[in-house]
Amino acid sequence: MDRGTEDKLARKGRHIGLVIAVTMVLWLGMTLFIGPALGLPGRYALLFDLAALAGFVYAGINIVQLWRLRQDSQR
């Protein structure tokens, strides 16, 4: 595996980790602290849950893409 491919895989892995971490922090912050502090109704919690789910689905798709890139680069 050449250096360019390794850098590409590492960059994609860092991106996935950052997406997961930021999604989790924002989701917990909005549903546990910021939403209740602003007095938002409970239905907004569902909106935050769906937004977090979208972030996790995006990360999952990217994890599969990363896995396939690693499999192709090892051949």
Rank of each mutant, 00 (worst) to 15 (best):
M1N: 01
M1W: 02
D2Y: 00
D2T: 03
D2K: 00
D2G: 08
R3H: 04
G4W: 04
T5F: 00
E6F: 06
E6N: 09
D7L: 15
D7W: 07
D7E: 10
L9E: 03
A10M: 06
A10E: 01
K12G: 00
K12C: 00
K12M: 09
G13S: 08
G13T: 02
H15S: 12
H15I: 05
I16L: 13
I16K: 03
I16V: 09
I16Y: 01
L18S: 10
L18K: 07
L18Q: 12
L18W: 07
V19R: 13
I20R: 08
V22S: 09
V22M: 08
V22I: 12
T23D: 12
V25F: 01
V25Y: 00
L26C: 09
W27F: 15
W27H: 14
G29V: 07
G29S: 09
M30S: 14
T31H: 07
T31F: 06
T31V: 15
L32Y: 11
L32R: 14
L32M: 10
L32E: 15
L32G: 13
F33P: 00
F33V: 15
G35F: 02
G35Q: 06
G35D: 15
P36K: 06
P36W: 05
P36T: 11
P36M: 03
P36Y: 04
P36E: 08
A37D: 02
A37G: 07
L38G: 05
L38R: 02
L38I: 13
L38P: 11
G39E: 04
L40G: 01
P41L: 04
G42M: 11
G42P: 03
G42Q: 14
G42A: 11
R43D: 10
Y44G: 03
A45L: 14
A45C: 11
A45E: 13
L46N: 12
L46G: 13
L47S: 13
F48M: 14
F48Y: 12
F48D: 14
D49A: 08
L50H: 10
L50V: 15
L50E: 07
A51T: 13
A51D: 08
A51W: 07
A51L: 14
A52R: 03
A52Y: 04
L53H: 04
L53I: 11
L53W: 05
A54G: 15
A54I: 14
V57C: 04
V57A: 14
V57N: 04
Y58K: 12
G60E: 02
I61N: 03
N62K: 11
N62A: 15
I63H: 07
V64S: 01
V64D: 01
V64I: 05
Q65G: 06
Q65Y: 01
W67A: 08
R68Q: 08
R68G: 00
R68C: 00
L69K: 05
R70M: 09
R70T: 06
Q71Y: 03
D72C: 02
S73F: 02
S73I: 04
S73K: 02
Q74G: 08
R75W: 02
R75N: 06
R75Q: 07
R75Y: 00
